[in-house]
Structures are given as structure tokens and as C-alpha cells.
Amino acid sequence: MPEGDTVWLTARRLNDALAGQVLTRFDLRVPRFATADATGRSVLEVTPRGKHLLTRIDGGLTLHSHLRMDGSWRVFAAGERWTGGPAHQIRAVLGNRERTAVGYRLPVLELLPTSEEERITARLGPDLLGPDWDADTAVARLRADPARSIGEALLDQRNLAGIGNVYRCELAFLARVTPWLPVGDLSAETVGRLVATAHRLLMANRDTFERRTVPGTGRRRPLLYVYGRPGAPCLRCGGPIATTSRRGPAPTAASGDERVTYWCPGCQRGPGPGPGQHS
């Protein structure tokens, strides 16, 4: 699942393939920009901002993309067969004489003047993997709404940019609280440790697509503490990992439960998701 670390690594690979090279192919397969043509222009850089990708092109253009749940960018050598999915899922093709970058299942794709990037980035909080990372600001923003659940606050990119559902679950586990515990129930020190852990984990995982939060190695050792492990024994207390269920009442945006959540009822203190929502 793409989160800030995945986006950072994707940006690096796109930058290695495209930056400094003249575009020989520019194909955006979305109606609004289907006639746009940047061939003959050079790619200046590809940079991440939270979970957003910004491909800056000579002449003051920026191609903005967002991977959301299952989007991806793949890079292929000239003449290599594209293998990221069926052709109808391709949303963008950027090519030069040596490499071709193909964007699959991109739910957000727009071409805009580089001078207008702030329309996208201004609302984002400190970037966990960016040069502007500011832990104090992230802590202050998380604590600004004490009644909000910690899980919902972590997902809000206005507080800090780069956390998705995997890290939301893993960070709550490491903090020994459920994702539904109000932020106000946590001390400033605890929130500070949580933010520091988020930064450490994303930094540790930014160079690989195989995300790991559990230290150590071994084929049988899980990569993650709770995410994607329903019913498996907790690595801390041995109890079964619980998960929210789609069979229960439909979650609302205000609840912070839009996504499937994993947690250990045995060693994470705080409220659960509500009746009919877990198994």
C-alpha cells in the first residue's frame, strides 16, 4: 500500500530515469489532459511531497500524481515489455531515449503550472521524509484537536504528511493505544514519542518496497506487528490480532474508521471501533 516511504522511493526511481533527459513521449490518458504535449522538453526533477509526486518539466510545468490505494509508477528500459498491469489501466507514459515511466491506476493526475504547486502542497503538514521536517509542528498539530482519535489525526495530511493506514495501525500498536483513543488522552511526551517513531520508521523503510516495522530477520518473522495479521498471535502478548469488519454498520468519515484497522485488544489500551465492527 503506497505511503510516504513508497512515494519517496518511487520519486527517486523516477528522478533517476527522467531527470535531465528530453521527453520523446508524453501521453496522459485522462480526458482533461489527453491533448497535452510536453515532448521536446526536459524533465528537471521528480520530487515527493508527503504522498504526492511532483514531476517538474522545463518551461514551468508540473505533472502532479497521487498513488492513493493501488496506483503505481513503473520504469522500463527502452524496448522492454511493460508489466505493471493491463493497458486500460495506464494513465500516463513519460519516455526518453533510454527509459519509459508508466503510471498505472493513478486516481489523481493533473498538469499545472509549477508556480501553482502551492495549491497542492500548502495544505500539507511537515513532510516526514522532507527537508522541511519539523517534529514540534507535527506534535502541535496532532494535539490541536484533543477530542479527535489518534488514528484519524495521524491520517490527516495537514498534521504531518506521509502516514497511511499501515503506519496508522503500526504506530498505535507501538504506542500501546488503540487508534480510537482521543488525542487528548495522550500526554505531550507520548505524542512526541509517537511522532519520533513515525519519522524513524519511514526513514528506515524509504529505500525498499518491503516495508518492515518488526526488527530482526528470518523467513517466519512477520514484517509488521498488526497490519494484515488478523487472528495471528500478537508479538507482544500472544493474544489474537483483531480487525474491523466490513459486515458491521457502515463507518462514517467522522469516525476515522473508513479503512480496515488492525490492533491487539490485549495490549493496546483505549476504546474499540464500536459494536459489530471487529472480529
Rank of each mutant, 00 (worst) to 15 (best):
A87C: 13
A87N: 14
A87S: 14
Q89I: 12
Q89Y: 13
I90D: 04
I90Y: 09
R91N: 10
R91H: 04
R91D: 12
R91L: 08
A92L: 12
A92R: 07
V93R: 03
V93K: 13
V93H: 05
L94T: 11
G95F: 05
N96W: 02
N96S: 08
R97D: 15
R97Q: 14
R99F: 12
R99Q: 03
R99C: 08
T100L: 00
A101I: 09
G103A: 04
G103Y: 00
Y104W: 06
R105C: 06
L106N: 07
L106E: 03
L106S: 06
L106R: 05
L106K: 08
P107I: 05
P107F: 07
V108Y: 09
L109M: 11
L109C: 10
L109P: 05
L109S: 04
E110P: 04
L111K: 09
L111V: 11
L112C: 14
T114Q: 03
T114N: 08
S115Y: 01
S115K: 13
E116R: 10
E117S: 06
E117H: 14
E118R: 15
E118C: 15
E118L: 15
E118F: 13
R119D: 08
T121H: 01
A122N: 09
A122I: 13
R123I: 08
R123F: 12
R123Q: 13
R123Y: 15
G125L: 04
G125V: 09
P126H: 03
P126S: 03
L128V: 05
G130W: 03
G130S: 02
P131Q: 05
D134P: 03
A135W: 14
A135K: 15
A135P: 14
D136F: 12
D136W: 13
D136E: 15
T137L: 15
T137A: 08
A138N: 01
A138Q: 09
V139H: 00
R141W: 01
R141A: 02
R141T: 10
L142T: 14
L142S: 15
A144C: 01
A144M: 01
D145W: 14
D145S: 14
A147M: 14
R148F: 14
R148T: 11
R148N: 06
R148S: 12
S149M: 05
I150E: 04
I150F: 03
G151T: 06
A153M: 04
L154D: 00
L154K: 10
L155Y: 03
L155R: 01
D156T: 03
Q157M: 03
Q157L: 01
R158P: 02
R158D: 09
L160T: 10
A161L: 04
A161V: 05
G162Q: 04
G162D: 05
I163Y: 07
I163E: 02
I163G: 00
Y167C: 11
Y167R: 06
Y167H: 01
C169D: 13
C169H: 01
C169F: 02
C169T: 00
A172F: 00
A172I: 14
A172Q: 09
F173H: 07
